[in-house]
Amino acid sequence: MKILTSYAPLVWLIISLTSASGFDAGVSKEDFLALKTLVVLQNDIIRKNEKELALQRKVIEELQNERQILGQLATEVRNAAKHMSYLDHLCNNTMVSNGHLIEKRIPISETIAFHVCFDHNVEHLGTSHELAFNIVITDTHSAYEKHSGTYIAPISGIYVFSWVTPIYNGDIPFQLIVNGEVKGKTDPYGSGGITTTGVAVISLNEHDVVMIRTNPTFQPLGRIESGIYKNACFSGWKI
């Protein structure tokens, strides 16, 4: 019979009472039987708790497996969104000539710029959360994909990027990402409303992918504010 350590004194008492001296210790047979019954009841409770603990461990393991699966699905969705972004870029920047798919050539002197914003507050942010600004105000070459929040450089050159991120009651570090590499950082934090603006001048090759995301090593606190009185925006232009 399995008995927890915390009940050892009680077990020792019963063993003592059942020694060669019988019931000479001054404890009646009725009291002894009552103590024995108590130990049996306690062991029943222990076994029940052990079964419940095993069940809880199984539930926790299943939840952890589900969380891992959801994480894998989220990664697949993000990759699919990036793929769709590239396909959209090809549709907007290629044409068929003599049965061949060729890229549309953009005059070097042509203005290239984009400006996108959120029209709502953004809450429940996670690490490496890519900001998919949903309102496109300017996009001269249809190079911004609002479903993934990525901008694909239409031609090579020097670009200026700016990101404005008002937050409320929190700490949300942001990163400017180019082809998976960090090229700029901001970290608005504090109580109440606070806004930071990041600016970066970067040399891009044609088809380079640019985005804004939260820091992968810090869980964001608070929310991004964007609405009637202020906007969270992402902008860029070729100089």
Rank of each mutant, 00 (worst) to 15 (best):
N43I: 02
L10N: 00
V27R: 01
E30F: 06
I14R: 01
E61F: 08
L73T: 06
S21Q: 08
E62D: 13
V27D: 01
F23L: 15
L38M: 11
Q64R: 12
R47W: 04
R57W: 01
Q56R: 09
E66R: 14
S21M: 05
R67T: 12
A20S: 10
I60L: 14
K36A: 15
S16G: 13
R47N: 12
L33D: 10
I45C: 00
N43G: 15
I46L: 07
I69N: 08
V27M: 09
T37Q: 14
K36E: 10
K58L: 13
L17V: 05
I45R: 03
Q56P: 00
L53A: 15
E52G: 01
T18L: 15
G71Y: 02
Q72P: 02
A74W: 03
K29S: 13
E62Q: 15
E30Q: 12
K29W: 08
E61I: 09
S16L: 10
D44H: 06
I14T: 09
L38C: 04
L41R: 13
L55F: 07
K36S: 11
E30S: 09
E62A: 13
L33S: 05
S21A: 13
L17E: 13
K58M: 08
A34I: 05
E61D: 14
L17H: 04
Q64E: 15
L41H: 12
L70N: 10
L17I: 08
A25D: 14
A8I: 04
L38Y: 13
L53Y: 05
V40A: 15
T37R: 07
T18K: 09
L17F: 05
F23S: 14
K51G: 05
E66A: 09
L33H: 04
S16Y: 11
L13M: 02
L41K: 12
T75Q: 14
E50G: 02
Q56F: 11
A25W: 10
A20T: 14
I46T: 11
A54Q: 11
E52S: 10
G26Y: 06
R57P: 00
G71M: 11
N43Y: 02
L63R: 07
N49R: 08
L38P: 02
I45T: 03
R57H: 04
V40G: 14
R67M: 12
L70P: 00
A74F: 03
S28R: 06
E66L: 14
E62S: 10
K48G: 01
Q68F: 03
Q42W: 04
